[in-house]
Structures are given as structure tokens and as C-alpha cells.
């Protein structure tokens, strides 16, 4: 793990995560946010523990204060140009597990997303003013 203070890579992502979640909760007139889910591709080099820690700081004073963050790590999906196989990798080393070829074509696992929100919303239009 990087030494403390240099983990700001995750910090800026956590701030963006909180910002997007707030916008979305407001847009959907949510009364509460119960949970937040993020998806982190292995190729981003993002360390989930650091993102978790950064999130706990970044959410202070926002509507996410009560909303735990769940992080799903997305494996790399890639196609090998040599053997043609579609492979799943759990580390950022882009090597075909079948034929050891390097030039893999990336199909997924290289992004970071606000995956979903679990929201409390009103049944009818009644309390709709958030």
C-alpha cells in the first residue's frame, strides 16, 4: 500500500463518487440513501481499502453519511490476439494465461463506476420536494 498522504488518487475518486451519488439521489427525490455500490476495474490500479477510507472522509456532511459503501472489484476481461481466447484476469499483468502472449485486447475491467444506489423514495408524488 502507498504510504499515507499519497493515497489521494483514491481521494479524488471518492470525491467524484460522493458528488455523483448526491446528484443522483437528489434527482430521484430520495428521502434517504441506504447504500452505495462502486465498481472498480483491476486495471485502474485503485486500491479498494484506500477508496473505502477516502469515501468515509469524503461523505462527511453529505446525504451519504449513513450509507455504507460496497466495492466490487471487476476483473479484467480481455481477448488474446494469438490464441483468440477470451480470458479473465485478476491482476493488471496483461498476459494470456493460455499462451503467455502479451498484446491482449481489453474488453472490461479498466474503469471505475458508481454502480448503484439503494434509495428510500416516496410511493406517490406526496413528499416530492427534495
Amino acid at each position: 500500500m502507498p504510504p499515507p498522504g499519497r493515497d489521494m488518487h483514491e481521494w479524488s475518486l471518492a470525491c467524484e463518487l460522493v458528488r455523483e451519488a448526491e446528484i443522483e439521489a437528489r434527482r430521484r427525490s430520495a428521502l434517504r440513501v441506504h447504500a452505495v455500490k462502486a465498481s472498480v476495474g483491476v486495471l485502474t490500479g485503485v486500491v479498494p481499502e484506500l477508496l473505502q477510507r477516502a469515501y468515509e472522509m469524503a461523505r462527511q456532511g453529505t446525504c451519504l453519511e449513513e450509507a455504507p459503501l460496497e466495492i466490487e472489484v471487476e476483473a479484467v476481461r480481455a481477448r488474446c490476439p494469438q490464441c483468440g481466447r477470451e480470458v479473465t484476469l485478476h491482476s493488471p499483468a496483461l498476459v494470456c494465461p493460455d499462451c503467455s502472449s502479451l498484446g491482449l485486447e481489453i474488453l472490461g475491467g479498466d474503469g471505475i463506476f458508481l454502480a448503484s444506489l439503494e434509495l428510500e423514495v416516496a410511493e406517490a408524488a406526496g413528499g416530492n420536494h427534495v
Binding site: 455523483e20 443522483e24 430521484r28 428521502l31 441506504h34 465498481s39 463506476f113 458508481l114 454502480a115 448503484s116 444506489l117 439503494e118 434509495l119 428510500e120 423514495v121 416516496a122 410511493e123 413528499g127
Partner: peptide, 10 residues
Amino acid sequence: THREEAVLYR
């Protein structure tokens, strides 16, 4: 009120 999941992948 009820809970709902908003799937976003933003």
C-alpha cells in the same frame, strides 16, 4: 415510502 435500487454504472 419504499426502498429502490438505482442501477447507474456512471
